[in-house]
Design a protein around this nucleic acid. Structure first.
Lengths: 211, 211
DNA sequence: GGGCTTTCGCTACGAGTCGTAGCGTAATGC
DNA sequence: GCATTACGCTACGACTCGTAGCGAAAGCCC
């Protein structure tokens, strides 16, 4: 989560209940009000805590919403369905289901927008949201290579680059479809997407093709 | 741009200079302050107009920023470079160059986030930003089909669906790479991306593979 | 030129939010 | 019991919002 260091061993400990209540209240406020109309005073009232308590734990709206939205991605798991295509389809559908929730929609993109001018916020998003998604890509590829569906990478540099490319293609397409195009990520779309991606990757691996 | 109807033929006309000054001031404020710290009063001061003038033309921050950012995409053009791969790479590099500018970064994602709770705003973004990008996809495919690089579509329904898929994959990947991963869209990345996409599409077209 | 209409710049305003300070109280560890 | 920290509460100045009202300016039409 946020700060983990138990810098203080003495004194009254912070209420763990309050943390959970604040984050839940933040998500509820995101659903009802959206990002722009969400105020920290309102969140504090919903959570049943004082506004000052909220400010003692989070430095502002951005950090609070990142933590509140990050919890939504806890449920993301890579299903071991036996084939790479099914793995991808399963993860994409899970990711899309989370992204379709109103608290994720209005909150996530807003903090990403803010992160363009705030390096610390960008790093916070990376740690609590993005890296968890990226790990699924790495794990999925490793499984597919073990099954022989994808060839092993020749060197770690291109392996890392390809993983980054795949991640941006998968997450980017789903996010863009959901938030910009405003169309649902249903099974039909996922099938078409997976088809294009997988065949592109298989062919790309067969023909390394460095320009 | 915004309202096109010259509803009033009489009276003092609106200053066209003011419109341009306000939009330019908005972009300047986005660069210096970012989305969250941008205030309409400050934009009015920068543009040399009264705050009330600004409110007469735009209903709020969201609509103003959409128009200001939309102008950045005016320069987007499809280069006729002779091959589909070169066309894609050219457009992607143009798109990425625009998206890398700070006024686009901080403004565009913020209004997209707001648009998740505002249908009118979403439509405004679609008209002034998204559709112009989408047209390039349609045009590029049509050229590639004329060249024989892509097979003609069997029916208009799947043609439309495939175009939507390609658009979300291209725009999504570039946006995600730029804003979420925070990595540059350089020529090396574009080559790898185009390779995967094109080979996926060519194979997909060869094997229609429904269900 | 005279009149009509709309826009313009300016000032001022109530409402709402921000983030902080100060206080007395509650809950821990030693 | 004592030191230390977190808590709830209240209050505060600073800021932004969006609007109203005013006199002046800049166009059309006769």
């Amino acid at each position: 989560m946020h700060s983990r260091s138990p810098a203080s061993r003495t004194g009254r400990p912070r209420s763990a209940t309050a943390d959970a209540a604040i984050l839940a209240a933040t998500r509820a406020a995101l659903v009802e009000l959206g990002w722009s109309k969400l105020t920290l005073g309102d969140v504090a009232t919903r959570a049943g805590v004082a506004k000052t308590t909220l400010y003692r734990r989070w430095s502002g709206k951005n950090e609070l919403v990142v933590d509140a939205v990050a919890e939504l991605f806890d449920e993301l798991e890579l299903p071991d369905s036996g084939s790479l295509a099914a793995d991808i389809e399963g993860v994409v559908l899970q990711f899309a289901a989370i992204l379709a929730r109103p608290e994720a929609k209005s909150g996530l993109m807003a903090v990403v927008a803010e992160a363009t001018r705030d390096d610390a916020l960008r790093e916070r998003i990376r740690e609590s949201v993005v890296d968890r998604q990226k790990r699924l890509v790495l794990e999925g590829r490793s499984r597919a290579q073990a099954r022989g569906e994808l060839p092993p990478e020749p060197d770690p540099v291109t392996a890392s680059r390809t993983a980054d490319l795949i991640f941006d293609m998968v997450a980017g397409a789903v996010v863009h479809r959901t938030l910009v195009s405003g169309e649902p990520v249903d099974e039909e779309w996922v099938r078409g997407f997976t088809l294009v991606l997988l065949r592109g990757l298989a062919a790309e691996a067969a023909h390394p093709a460095a320009g």
